[in-house]
Design a protein around this nucleic acid. Sequence first.
DNA 1: TTTTATTATCGTAATATTGCAATATACAAA
DNA 2: TTTGTATATTGCAATATTACGATAATAAAA
Lengths: 107, 107
Amino acid sequence: MGITKTQIFNTKQNELATIFKVLANPARIAILQYISGQKACICNDIVEEIGLAQPTISQHLKELKSIDLIAGEIDGKRVCYCINLEKWKEIQDLLNSFFDKTTFNCC
Amino acid sequence: MGITKTQIFNTKQNELATIFKVLANPARIAILQYISGQKACICNDIVEEIGLAQPTISQHLKELKSIDLIAGEIDGKRVCYCINLEKWKEIQDLLNSFFDKTTFNCC
DNA sequence: TTTTATTATCGTAATATTGCAATATACAAA
DNA sequence: TTTGTATATTGCAATATTACGATAATAAAA
């Protein structure tokens, strides 16, 4: 049905899945890598860098913002997107916790 | 278009996205947690445990198998799914490497 | 004010994903 | 062999995602 039965699962499971979903796209991975690689605060050279249309990039940025992975700072007519370090580390910890807790094998 | 322009991105970016995509579903998270929580080798009590139809679970298991996150051992008419510890840790390392390399902020 | 540049939103087309009923397959037990 | 049980596959309906053209919104520059 294309719809996920979130009611069946607990909050943590759904939260984890949501985070993974935001990261589950090479364009968004590339955007994150590009933003983090810049020393100065960079705006939408991202569009030129990535090679997707401006509305597409804008939409991907919105999804990254939806879990606070990045933040946009308005600078005149430009917007500067930066990685939200606090959230970034929080998510890394959350994923590691998932991987560590799920490491026991049954065979 | 629902289709991702993978040609635009490099192998590592696509690989990362694929891994995230497999994990981007609460049912698959729950399956992994359930499998790893069992001391004995557990088969499809998963269907009963999770609360989705058998074909649905079977499909999710197939996706988890597609990146070797789990392996299925045939035991008579039953199949025992276990976490592939080696791959599991490999993926955890890969994700940590992504998070570590992408930690520099621009603002 | 008009123009230009930057970013966001809307609408839409194409493809992907989720979920399940029906069915097929494989194997063990009777 | 037949029956029952466990798992996989197929086919389909519903919804989600990806991408982009057109357009709106915003702000600086002319």
